[in-house]
């Protein structure tokens, strides 16, 4: 599982639209040292190019872009929204939790993805994330230990 340091967790954020929500995930990944400032706009561009397919479950968007020079190390970020935003997905709108993901290569994170799938196979996970009020609560959903 990828770690989730405090700067990678932004809770109860205000986002005017889906772009703002994805850019918050980019800012969280940048703050945690995983990516540079170019990565957030690249995640936005993925949705502009391919549509809202990143909304992979009800209320959850998995924001990500391809590997690139703007990825410094593999990382994950969690953004929860005070007011859910619409991405334009036919089934899974509106979104209250944006997961940001950055990877160095297409293959490296296969194990991490399997672990992510384990977390979200638990149907309450998205609601628990949306309701979380501390980074430790978020880490607990992912099975990560609290930080001092």
């Amino acid at each position: 599982m990828l770690d989730l340091p405090d700067p990678a967790v932004l809770l109860k954020q205000q986002a005017a639209d889906w772009r703002a929500a994805v850019l918050l995930a980019g800012a969280a990944l940048e703050a945690s040292g995983a990516v540079t400032a170019e990565y957030g706009p690249r995640m936005v561009a993925m949705v502009e190019e391919f549509g809202a397919y990143i909304v992979i479950a009800p209320g959850l968007a998995l924001a990500h872009a391809r590997p690139g020079d703007d990825v410094l190390r593999a990382g994950m970020a969690v953004v929860t929204l005070d007011e859910p935003v619409v991405f334009g997905h036919p089934y899974n709108d509106p979104v209250s939790v944006v997961l940001g993901l950055a990877v160095l290569t297409a293959d490296e994170h296969v194990t991490g993805i399997a672990e992510l799938a384990n977390v979200f196979n638990e149907t309450a996970a998205i609601a628990r994330l949306a309701a979380a009020t501390s980074a430790d609560e978020v880490r607990a959903v992912f099975g990560l230990s609290a930080q001092a």
């Binding site: 993925m46 190019e49 391919f50 397919y53 990143i54 992979i56 998995l62 990500h64 872009a65 391809r66 590997p67 993901l101 990877v103 297409a106 994170h109 296969v110 993805i113």
Partner: peptide, 8 residues
């Protein structure tokens, strides 16, 4: 779209 996140 990218073959790295959602398809995995």
């Amino acid at each position: 779209g990218a073959g790295v996140g959602t398809s995995a």
